[in-house]
Amino acid sequence: MITFIVNGKTHEFSGDPTTPVLWYLRDELQLTGSKFGCGMGQCGACTVHINGVAQRSCVLPVSAVSGSKITTIEGLSEDGEHPVQQAWIEHKVPQCGYCQCGQMMQAASLLATNPTPTDDEIVQEMSGNICRCGTYPRIHKAIKSASKTLAAVQYYDPKVKGEQA
C-alpha cells in the first residue's frame, strides 16, 4: 500500500507500484489536466509538483512518491487565480492548450524557487517543455509578468497546501 497526498487529499494505492504517477492521476483519479505527450520525460506535458518541485510524472513510478505531496494543475489554485494562470490568461498564451498545464506547472515551480528569473534562466528552465503550437514567446512573456506580481511568490506555497490535508 502506497500513501500520498494529491492536491491536499490523502490517497492510497495498492496497484502495480511501477505505474507512473501520470497514469495513476489520469486513469484512477480522473485528474486529466496532466497530459501524456511522450512518456519518456522529453516534453513536460505531464509535469506535476512533487513536494513543490516540478517533475515529469510520466516517468515517475508511484512507488517513488510514497509519502509525498503531489500537486497537479487542478490543485494549483481554486479557480485559476494563481499568478501564473492569471499571466497565461493576460497574455492569451494557449493555442490548443494541450501542453499548457505542464508549462504552467513548470513555470510555477520556477517562480517558487526563483521569483525573478532572468530571460536566460526562463529559457533554460522551460526548454524541457515542448509546445508544438509554438507559444514559446508568449510563455516567456507570461512568466516575466507573473514574476512581476509579487504575489506570485507568496501565493503558492506547496508545503502549506500539503499540510492542510
Binding site: 485528474l31 486529466t32 497530459k35 501524456f36 494543475i73 494562470q85 497565461w88 492569451k92 492548450g97
Partner: peptide, 20 residues
C-alpha cells in the same frame, strides 16, 4: 479573449483521452 481560455488554464478542457 477566446472562449476556452479559462478552461485550458484550469486544466479542464476535454481532449480525446479526457473522455470518461
Amino acid at each position: 479573449e477566446h472562449i476556452d481560455l479559462k478552461d485550458i488554464v484550469m486544466g479542464k478542457a476535454t481532449f480525446a483521452a479526457d473522455v470518461f
